[in-house]
Design a protein around this nucleic acid. Structure first.
Lengths: 228, 228
DNA sequence: GTTTACGATTTTGTATACAATTTTAGCGCA
DNA sequence: TGCGCTAAAATTGTATACAAAATCGTAAAC
């Protein structure tokens, strides 16, 4: 995520990506400690490269570094959750509009493939992968808009949204995003910028309101952290 | 810039900040190589901490890391320059609007102090410091809007803008930003969100059009890079 | 004179070693 | 039992050592 264009997968990049996926799929829960020795042993690398990977993830706000204390999977606060979706609301609707004006048939095909895979994953019960693909859909739109700088920001925000959803999702509402994405792709296909902008705007609003953003940062991992 | 909240200035953070300032003040020119040994010797630290600092700066796009080749001061392309200001145009006007609605008298005082120092620096001929303060003004507005996530993005974009201005500034237009900032602060003081949004929008447009964004990435450091 | 190949030097990538800080466990004492 | 203190263990921060890659200089070949 927002890596600095390494031509070949460097050691730290590989570790960072693997950790990021694990966090996105909620296999590493928020608040969990990421010991340098432990991570290094798992991936068969030294602490040097683990530290580089953790620093990269910290920059993307997926992990939090505490000086002399170590790295922990981030626990976005309610305020941070709102801020992330506020930022997305500033960036994504206008980007979707630009994408609609520039989208080629090939772009639409790629997006459609994303949606199909998302549906398949959802049908197979792999909600983790479905969520990941759902995020990729948003990043792909920014790429179509040919705005790589904005695309990097959106990629980071989508990544953080994944953590936020893991923390604050209220299971009452079904995962009905697919419909929003279907409508979006149709607007993009017919180059309807205004519709795409509006659809994206409401899609993000729906996402935000589907969260339970009332108070505390959700379940702490241990009683100790609850009193921290 | 966008540091991960170290409670005390860590070694790498200190080096990164010092390098960032040097880049902003154009004492380190775009394309210049940053040797790890050399930087480490200058600051009296080992390559380990230099590498961490360079990685942080690379994430903020102030330096570019080339695998097995080293770190270089970034040379934003024309396309990247346009993208950075496009992103700022998406984020800053609406953020200025929010700031206007929330600004307290103390916030206005802080902003006014920034402007005064900016004027003083400009009057003293220290354009480097003036540019730095000018950027801080924009970041401060995001802070007033109480949107730290957006503020971090803006901080990074302002930082990159500094490099872009160093590269593409056409000296024909004078540094008349101050007037724009004066008008902005007045709109903020009277809580006129609409005016602040519009002023920020035009301010960014003016900045963009004051650049010479025609073709090549400006002066290359070596002939080799010119043909790369 | 130009080009190509090869070796030496330099520089980066990674692992390991040591220092500093934090955490934890044990012990004494009220 | 509960609290506070001290020391040992574990973990992070930093420096150094070694391996791999790229760069540079030289020289040989055409």
């Amino acid at each position: 995520m927002q890596g600095q264009a390494d031509q070949r997968e460097s050691g730290s990049a590989r570790v960072a990506e693997s950790l990021a996926i694990a966090i996105h799929e909620h296999r590493l829960s928020p608040g969990m400690k990421l010991s340098e020795d432990e991570v290094g042993e798992i991936y068969g690398v030294s602490r040097t490269v683990v530290r580089a990977a953790l620093q990269e993830l910290a920059h993307d706000r997926l992990v939090e570094l505490k000086r002399n204390r170590g790295a922990f999977v981030a626990q976005p606060s309610v305020k941070e959750a709102r801020e992330v979706f506020e930022a997305r609301s500033l960036l994504e609707p206008r980007t979707a509009k630009s994408a609609a004006e520039r989208a080629t048939p090939e772009d639409i095909k790629i997006l459609q493939k994303h949606i199909d895979e998302e549906h398949a994953a959802l049908h197979a019960g792999d909600t983790g992968r479905a969520l990941h693909l759902s995020g990729m859909f948003h990043v792909e739109i920014a790429r179509i808009a040919d705005q790589s700088t904005v695309a990097e920001f959106i990629a980071q925000l989508v990544s953080r949204s994944s953590l936020i959803i893991a923390l604050y999702w209220q299971r009452r509402t079904a995962l009905c995003e697919s419909h929003a994405h279907d409508a979006l792709i149709k607007a993009l296909a017919r180059h309807d910028g205004a519709a795409a902008e509006e659809l994206m705007h409401h899609h993000l609003l729906d996402l935000l309101t589907s969260l339970d953003l009332r108070d505390q940062p959700s379940v702490p991992k241990s009683l100790k952290e609850a009193l921290n």
